[in-house]
Write a protein that binds this DNA or RNA. Structure first.
Lengths: 157, 157
DNA sequence: TATTGTTATACTCTATAACTATA
DNA sequence: TATAGTTATAGAGTATAACAATA
């Protein structure tokens, strides 16, 4: 509790990596909190968004998209399926694959969750003007494109 | 491996939180990799920087500064002490407190580690012009000040 | 033999809470 | 009784590897 001076961490804020890590962690935990009322976490939110944008896909494809091991998809999809947000159907052409598709309920919850996500984003950027927000997003996208642009974005710490 | 289309995650990049989380994770893991040759991780790097800027302090004060529980400091400082980068001295006025101070070796390794950190930052921002880099840092600092500015910056996922 | 999805295991990280020594 | 530091424990998250079904 005995933090010193005004702000000893100020010296760290010169490092953009520090700012990115801190804001990333804040944003992640807050996103999870915002999404919790809808029964999903930010990974599942991303999953629903991809399904919505790219159409149905196998768990392998999805795990490739999200850059996570297939084993991790199981619980994620289990939970979405239990809540009726996605449907798992054995592909007729290749019965090994699970074809995952968004249900009507899934599309509905995605719409509501998306609103919450946008609301939180607005709150995060409340101090920036509209042009500044666009500038920030554009700069971050350029950095992202260079360093994570190749294919799926991996965590792989 | 069977990631679909050009980049299905593109739909996620409209969310600044996604970009921040991904870049934060990338930056963190890369920082650890850059610092590993010096025998420290990014937390210890931050610790050394704070000691350098604010002078010696107790473990409590440091843990307050960094926003982590005192128990976590122990191993962090143990390791730094083993390598001779900091000295732990029982305070004479209150023998419960450990006064942590930077050693000469600590100051030397900090200087070298800092160069590596700056080099990585330059690489991260390689596609941005000098004014753009300044703009990005300034925007991030303003967002940080609003949402994490109060005191110590907590992780607390 | 290779691949999809699943399950089991093991490892890392971290917070919480007991414990000690000082005050 | 309260506080600084330490140790112990327990939980979450996650990757890796074994496994079953299908190709």
């Amino acid at each position: 509790m005995t933090a010193r001076q005004p702000r000893p961490t100020e010296v760290l804020e010169g490092h953009i990596g520090y700012l990115l890590a801190k804001l990333g962690a804040l944003s992640s935990s807050r996103m999870d909190a915002e999404l919790a009322p809808f029964g999903i976490n930010r990974m599942q939110f991303g999953l629903l968004k991809i399904l919505d944008a790219a159409g149905p896909g196998s768990q392998q494809a999805l795990s490739g998209d999200l850059g996570m091991p297939p084993s991790r998809m199981v619980a994620l999809v289990d939970d979405l399926e239990d809540q009726g947000f996605v449907a798992r159907e054995r592909s007729s052409s290749d019965r090994r694959v699970n074809e995952i598709r968004l249900t009507r309920e899934g599309r509905a919850v995605l719409a509501r969750a998306n609103k919450a996500a946008v609301r939180w984003q607005d709150e995060l950027l409340v101090d920036l003007s509209a042009p500044e927000r666009n500038q920030l997003v554009e700069l971050l996208r350029r950095v992202t494109a260079r360093h994570l642009g190749g294919g799926a974005v991996h965590d792989h710490s």
